[in-house]
Design a protein around this nucleic acid. Structure first.
Length: 224
DNA sequence: CCAGACGTTGTT
DNA sequence: GTCTGG
DNA sequence: CCAGACGTTGTT
DNA sequence: GTCTGG
């Protein structure tokens, strides 16, 4: 993972593309490993399971952690303090309510310049011995323009200059860690309406990517 | 002291 | 593990 | 997040 | 309506 100056994955199966990531599936993350000497890439299970949980199933509903409370919530605070990671993606999906009538509109959000989106993540280890499972969660915050067009929350996006701070490689205070990206950086987001097929995680593959690629930006008021 | 909770999303 | 409620 | 299920008995 | 699975 040259983009992140990270090594790996060394022990997991090679990374393969995922066009529709579901909670509880493995996702690549970048984190700092003292024993391996720097930034490493590993596949972690999406949906953070606190170490004290009695079972893995709670992870399905721990896919996000609110920036407003991540430092104090028992389920997240130790991971926030000591186990932060980067979660890279080409983009992500959001769903907006249709103003008139039932149903939802799916959207694919990407960087206009084709660059990666990097989400602020947390990781945790659950279990012991052979049962050890590493899990992760993505921090969310209030949406800012232009993302407010489709949703009132968004992942905490980290421009490249904030990666080292999030990973704990350079000092920063808690408020700065959780600050949203600048309006200028957010202006580089592209929001495209996509078909409802993305709503079912069984739909996954290059074919789904093609459907997403065919979409072009459309002014919101022409959609409904 | 022990028992029990520990989370987010969205929508109403 | 650690905090809150009883 | 959305899609899809939504149950009990007993036995291993 | 609400929970589980992906």
């Amino acid at each position: 993972m040259a983009e992140f100056d990270a090594i790996g994955p060394e022990f997991d199966e090679p990374l393969r593309p995922d066009y529709n990531v579901a909670p509880t599936t493995q996702v690549p993350v970048v984190r700092v490993s003292a024993s391996r000497g720097g930034r490493v890439v590993d596949s972690l299970r999406w949906g953070l399971v606190p170490s004290w949980s009695s079972d893995l199933s709670v992870g399905a509903r721990m896919i996000n952690a609110r920036a407003e409370s991540v430092a104090t919530k028992p389920a997240f605070r130790s991971a926030f303090a000591r186990r932060r990671c980067l979660v890279p993606a080409d983009g992500w999906y959001e769903w907006s309510a249709r103003p008139d009538g039932p149903g939802k509109q799916a959207w694919y959000l990407t960087r206009e310049d084709g660059g990666s989106c990097v989400f602020a993540g947390l990781w945790e280890v659950w279990g012991s011995g052979d049962e050890k499972v590493a899990t992760c969660s993505i921090v969310t915050t209030d949406a800012l323009a232009p993302l407010t067009e489709v949703h009132h929350r968004m992942p905490l996006l980290l421009p490249r200059e904030r990666w080292a701070e999030w990973l704990g490689e350079s000092p920063v205070d808690a408020d700065a860690l959780l600050a949203p990206p600048s309006p200028e950086w957010l202006a580089g987001m592209e929001l495209r309406p996509v078909g409802s097929a993305v709503g079912n995680v069984r739909n996954n593959g290059p074919q789904l990517q093609a459907a997403v690629d065919r979409s072009t930006p459309v002014p919101l008021d022409t959609l409904f």
